[in-house]
């Protein structure tokens, strides 16, 4: 990982010298086994950039905060799609952005790492040895076999090498997907439940939603400048509030079904919504369910600029005839 970080710093510093105003990448986090989004604005700051298997964040949404600046952004394979998505919907001016792709061998599930690493052990270096990440610490080496320790989204990821980027760093990454694993395993398990158990499951998980809206704020497909669930501009949607601010279960259903529906066909599968949730609501189940249905129902047909729900085919399946 050292070489990758090195070339990242070099390129960032070069881009910042050559007119890029903000370089969005990752820096080391304050917690054990963590990274954080980092915004370099001067070439010297490039020295703080890192890339390691804790760089799980999708940084693309930050781009919309800099509409007038020349920016560069680090993307993994699973993040890259968000750039084209946002550019197609004209939230981003692609011309102003340098997309820096990094091949990714998978992100480690932080909790698994913490469970196996002695507390307060500083990670000095991370080495990728084939299908294992080796964490070097003052107390010795700790190997983490990918198959057992990667984040769920990484275990089924086939986008390890970013596409559509302006700059590709490092060496091609070997696919990390576990062929044994069905990406839709979770969705199918819920589908197989009897209706009553489905209801009980969702009542339980939605019941603990805090409506902190972190899942919306982080999502690159939640790109509306005014969200249906807020009144940040007086009179927006004639003052209608779709859900009460006071937490309650029916409104949480409303929020979740509509959040998932608004990103249907536009979700890029980065799983950020699920990662940020403080109460671990399995939001990806909803996103994946919709992706699965869209594929099954309208898979072959053309999609519009904002995805398959902005398009139609006269011979789409019709259950309503």
């Amino acid at each position: 990982m050292k070489e990758l970080t090195e070339s990242l710093r070099q390129e960032a510093s070069r881009l910042l010298r050559e007119g890029v105003e903000v370089f969005i990448g990752y820096a080391a986090g304050s917690l054990q086994a963590s990274a954080r989004p980092f915004f370099a604005t001067r070439p010297e700051e490039a020295a703080e950039l890192v890339f390691n298997p804790f760089c799980v964040h999708n940084l693309v949404k930050y781009l919309v905060r800099f509409p007038d600046k020349r920016t560069a952004v680090v993307v993994k394979g699973c993040d890259g799609g968000a750039v084209s998505r946002l550019a197609e919907e004209r939230h981003l001016d692609r011309e102003k952005i340098t997309v820096v792709g990094v091949p990714c061998g998978g992100m480690l599930e932080r909790e698994r790492v913490l469970a196996q690493l002695p507390p307060a052990t500083r990670i000095e270096a991370v080495e990728e040895r084939g299908n294992t990440y080796v964490l070097h610490t003052a107390r010795g080496e700790y190997p983490f076999e990918k198959k057992a320790n990667l984040a769920a989204k990484c275990l089924v990821c086939v986008r390890n090498n970013p596409v559509g980027v302006d700059l590709l760093l490092g060496k091609e990454a070997m696919p990390v997907a576990d062929p044994e694993r069905d990406p839709l395993e979770g969705v199918k398990a819920v589908e197989a439940l009897p209706a009553g158990e489905k209801a009980a499951f969702w009542d339980r998980v939605f019941g603990r939603c805090l409506r902190c809206y972190a899942c919306r704020e982080v999502c690159p497909a939640c790109s509306c400048t005014q969200c249906a669930f807020e009144q940040a501009v007086p009179g927006w949607q004639q003052g209608a509030m779709w859900v009460e601010k006071a937490k309650n279960l029916p409104d949480s259903y409303h929020y979740h079904l509509i959040r998932a529906f608004h990103v249907a066909g536009r979700c890029t599968g980065c799983a950020e919504c699920e990662r940020v949730c403080p109460v671990r609501i399995p939001l990806m189940l909803l996103n994946q369910k919709l992706a699965k249905e869209i594929e099954a129902l309208f898979g072959g047909a053309p999609a519009g600029a904002c995805g398959p729900l902005c398009a139609y085919a006269p011979d789409d399946p019709d259950q309503f005839a």
Partner: peptide
């Protein structure tokens, strides 16, 4: 073309309702 969009949307929305046990 309005109802072509309705057809896509509501077919999908129905499957979502069913998925959450409704």
């Amino acid at each position: 073309t309005g109802n072509y969009f309705t057809r896509r949307r509501l077919t999908l929305f129905k499957s979502l309702l069913e998925f959450v046990g409704f």
